[in-house]
């Protein structure tokens, strides 16, 4: 039990710094930026109480905002993503049954489940983030394009990270 807390705290800190120090400087084709920090919200345990889910996502978004100097942007989109997480979990079914102690991961629930889960939540997050950033709907489609490209890159990174840590636990 303790182990899970420590794991998540470490994940929180590592992802926060990874995002602000390294990933924020990575750009594909000039303006596509992956936001891997949402991996923390994706991987929080199933049993976590709702208020704790919201508050920890809030803290993470706020931390990113302070470093990026974009107060409120990441906070609002992270909280929105956290709010939708239980709804998404309920609405997508897996070939495997939910069991106590399961983690939202490829190894516990299969690739297909995890992929759907990640794509939906990352899309919600990036959609909110990019539209809040431009703060207008005038360039609706060009913003949507950037949302989709960034979702692709974030999802790829999430899946890669999953496999990296999957291997380590098997050893």
């Amino acid at each position: 039990m303790n182990n899970i807390y420590i794991k998540n705290i470490i994940r929180f800190v590592v992802l926060l710094f990874l995002q602000v120090l390294i990933l924020d400087n990575i750009n594909f084709w000039g303006h596509i930026n992956p936001y891997l920090y949402v991996y923390f919200i994706l991987l929080l345990p199933f049993e976590i109480p709702g208020w704790f889910l919201l508050l920890s996502s809030f803290a993470l978004g706020f931390g990113i905002d302070i470093f990026a100097g974009t107060l409120g942007m990441h906070t609002a989109s992270s909280v929105l993503m956290a709010f939708f997480r239980p709804i998404v979990i309920k609405s997508i079914s897996s070939s495997k049954e939910y069991e106590a102690g399961m983690q939202p991961s490829i190894s516990d629930l299969g690739f297909r489940w995890f992929f759907t889960y990640t794509v939906i939540l990352v899309f919600i997050h990036h959609f909110a983030l990019f539209y809040i950033e431009v703060f207008r709907f005038s360039d609706f489609f060009s913003t949507l394009g950037r949302v989709i490209y960034s979702v692709i890159f974030t999802v790829i990174l999430v899946i890669i990270t999953q496999y990296l840590f999957l291997k380590r636990t098997k050893k």
């Binding site: 208020w51 919201l54 508050l55 409120g72 906070t75 609002a76």
Partner: peptide
């Protein structure tokens, strides 16, 4: 419905920051 109310509360806070910043 604490989950929903907390969500609304946090979003209001976040958006007030965004508006102030903008």
């Amino acid at each position: 419905h604490h989950f929903f109310f907390l969500f609304i509360l946090l979003e209001i806070f976040a958006f007030s920051l965004i508006v102030r910043n903008n």
